[in-house]
Design a protein around this nucleic acid. Structure first.
Lengths: 118, 118
DNA sequence: GCTGTACATATCCGACTGGTTATATTTCCA
DNA sequence: TGGAAATATAACCAGTCGGATATGTACAGC
């Protein structure tokens, strides 16, 4: 799989609120399928499918403990996303800079008036 | 649209290599549809669809200049992704791995890890 | 006006997605 | 040994996706 395809797989795995909720739960530690199922009103096979997608994307790994298949968060795939995102940082920080500049101009305009309250 | 849905829309827009390539091109400045089309061997309507997806996700904005519709990168949607990603950083950074492992061992030592909740 | 250019929209198609229910598999335990 | 629990797999369905081709719309310049 090419690097672009891997990133696509990861991002599309993340583009689902249920799967992101699963990842959020896993930040608190490993969990079984049933534990991950509990907060949702969907069927168990649906969760198993989500876990398969997350595993395929490298976002989780799975162990074996008797009849349990504990899930564990795997950070490295998220790092790929962060690394892709990084070069774009200036495009949202720049925006904030401009907003900040704008706010300072507003502030200056306000300060030049006698009555600062509406 | 809820916050989760907006993030899902953004992530699924990013989960396509063609759309990410379009964003990469736009880091070098605004571009027309034809300019964005050039590097790809897909049809013009296909690019228009991709641009619609990117616009809906808030990743680009579009102007009007005669018969051209220049596209411009919009960083704020990417910031949403970065903000979502940030709490997961400790899961890929090496420095905290030992602490994390330690915490997970403590958690495991508490036992009854796999109690069923239903 | 007329023509060419830039782009959007409509429609269709095959592949994929996220959900379901039903069933199979693996493992523990009484 | 046999049942219950945890999980996986199979089959199905409706909706979405990314592509195509064909056509429509808006504007520039002659």
């Amino acid at each position: 799989m090419t690097s672009a395809d891997r990133l696509s797989t990861t991002l599309s795995a993340l583009a689902d609120p249920t799967r992101r909720a699963i990842l959020a739960r896993l930040t608190m530690g490993e969990a079984s399928v049933n534990e991950l199922l509990a907060p949702f009103s969907i069927s168990q096979p649906a969760i198993s499918k989500h876990l398969k997608v997350l595993e395929r994307a490298g976002l989780i790994t799975r162990g074996r403990e008797a009849q349990w298949r504990p899930c564990k968060l795997e950070g490295s795939a998220l790092k790929d996303v962060a690394d892709w995102l990084e070069p774009y940082r200036r495009f949202w920080e720049e925006r904030l800079d401009r907003l900040d500049e704008h706010l300072r101009q507003l502030q200056a305009a306000k300060g030049s008036k006698h009555d600062q309250r509406k």
